[in-house]
């Protein structure tokens, strides 16, 4: 039976393709592929329908399908183009085979449906897999990119390192922050680590808890953690929530924190020339003119 249907489909492929193309073109109107040029759409459709027939002839040839799906993915066409196309193909083929047959009873119809389904199914599965595979790949790349962004560590000078935190901190990220912070402190031999939370929008009990844990772990490895960038509203939330941050130093700004860090490492910033001297030099140079 199946072979017989296949023969009908392949022998009359031109007719089926014609009907398929018409149907697909009608789908194009006001739909996903509206912005695509007619030529490209036309040629891709032909390629698509060829791939379908090659796959039917060769009992699911994968190379052609793979190549085609890769092309569609690169073009950025939606998955619905492929699923719609295959649905239409199934509908048209079933219609066509039925119209070519003399005796049509319910058994026969169910056989036709079954056969055509069997041709189309592996195609759908493979194309959808290719698509979701490419999405997963993109997703994992983005996750890596996000991880790299999520806990940067800047060794500003000998013995002092800064970790600026931007965005929401969840448990997963908190773990990453803690690991990066500790590894980095040891790698750069930092006696003081400044954790800057200026860019953290909300500090609730959970975020505060993670920050406290990180600061305590920093102390265990033998370094000092200073929390900087505490905005007024964050100070209010921290106190209102009853969180005790008293055990380690905090500063309102990175600048103040950096000064404390210098004090801890026995250093200070001095101006090379005082401003008065500058002014005198300026006056002197004016006199000379």
């Amino acid at each position: 039976m199946d072979q017989q249907f296949k023969r009908i489909a392949i022998e009359h492929s031109d007719a089926i393709v014609q009907r398929w193309l018409e149907e697909i073109n009608s789908l194009k109107e006001g739909n996903y592929t509206a912005s695509i040029s007619d030529e490209l759409f036309e040629s891709t459709n032909r390629e698509f329908v060829n791939v379908i027939f090659t796959s039917i002839k060769n009992q699911g040839s994968t190379a052609a399908v793979e190549e085609f799906s890769e092309k569609i993915i690169n073009l950025g066409w939606p998955l619905s183009y492929i699923t719609d196309g295959l649905q239409v193909f199934r509908r048209e083929t079933v219609d066509y085979i039925l119209s070519q047959s003399d005796k049509v009873d319910s058994d026969f119809i169910s056989n036709v449906l079954k056969s055509v389904d069997l041709w189309v199914e592996p195609l759908i599965r493979q194309l959808v897999n290719e698509y979701s595979g490419s999405w997963e790949h993109i997703l994992s790349l983005q996750r890596v990119a996000l991880q790299e962004l999520s806990a940067p560590l800047i060794p500003v000078m000998d013995k002092i390192t800064i970790m600026p935190l931007v965005g929401t901190i969840d448990t997963e990220r908190a773990k990453l922050i803690m690991e990066n912070l500790l590894e980095g402190a040891i790698k750069h031999n930092s006696e003081v680590v400044l954790m800057d939370i200026t860019g953290v929008p909300v500090v609730d009990t959970m975020v505060a808890h993670h920050i406290i844990q990180a600061a305590e772990a920093v102390r265990l490895i033998g370094s000092t953690c200073i929390l900087v960038g505490i905005r007024p509203e964050i100070a209010q939330t921290i106190v209102n929530l009853g969180i005790d941050l008293g055990k380690f130093p905090t500063k309102s700004s990175l600048r103040k924190g950096f000064k404390t860090a210098l004090e801890i490492t026995n250093r200070k910033v001095i101006d090379l020339k005082s401003q008065e001297e500058d002014a005198e030099n300026l006056m002197g140079s004016l006199d000379g003119e």
Binding site: M178, E179, L182, E183, A185, I186, N189, S190, E191, Q213, E216, A217, V218, R219, L220, I221, G222, S223, K247
Partner: peptide, 23 residues
Amino acid sequence: IQPAVAITLIDLGIHMKNVPTAL
């Protein structure tokens, strides 16, 4: 004290508050 060790201690709830540490 290694980072992994420090993190584990914090997870355990051991903070060793009275113990001086150095890198």
